[in-house]
Amino acid sequence: MAAPTVPAPAPGPPSAEALHAAAVARNVRTVQMVWRRELIRLQRMPSRIISGLAQPLLFLLVMGAGLGSLIGDQGAGGVDYQVFLFPGILAMSVITSSLFGAVGIVWDREFGFLREMLVAPVSRTSLVLGKALGGGMVSVVQGVVLIVLAPLVGVDLTVGRVLALLGAMLLLAFALTSFGIVLASRMQRMESFQMVMALVLQPMIFLSGAVFPLENLPGWLAVLTRLNPATYGVDLCRRAVLPEATRLTIGDWVVPVWFDALVVLGMGSLFLAVAVRVFSRTE
């Protein structure tokens, strides 16, 4: 096999375009790598999956059964309570693990790895995007484990419904991870993150329609729930698996699915942009 006789390119400073192309390639690969790092870390810490499952299982099985028997045949949102609860709990699990996934940034800060990433010649956008996608992916993986429980609580799944549910979960996970990154990047220590979890995470879940239907609420509660972006994510998940359930309304307006998706996507993009900005400033 003859060696190719192409003359070596003349050594010289690389052109601006070549540098630009190299930078783009580097950033794209960085997004993938940051993403993969999240998945590798999940794989190395399987306990995270198990501890992430405990709370949703308690809600779904114990609270679902308990409150379900109290509510009885009347059901919730037009379906049996436990069935109603199922997509809500999935959404709750995604929201929780996404926000907790973003805790990783605070850990990275404490253990210095963030510094390694921040001094690299890659854009903040790549790092944040990789983190949001990777963190989102991780929380979807955790949510997928719960889908298996659907038949147990009497939810009928079809391939189409599972795919729609996965899509909804991905969107929600992306949005909440971006939000979590913004929170985490403002935080210097682990303790303050715990505080935000209590002040942000729990109100967000309770006001989202994850655990009770949003019809016939007192006025103030109705307003708060509609102002909560997570409400639309929960509705998206519920529509995916329970087309027969009562639909989310704002006043008399029945919220269409595209609106749900738009709110969640808009929230995700907004927070992603904020995260990039905040990150560029933390130096």
Partner: peptide, 20 residues
């Protein structure tokens, strides 16, 4: 400033990616 949960090789690979 290493990632504890990555292997030595993975830490190096991560670095290599970021530095092109």
């Amino acid at each position: 400033t290493l990632d504890d949960y990555l292997t030595a090789a993975e830490n190096l690979r991560f670095h290599a990616v970021m530095y092109g």
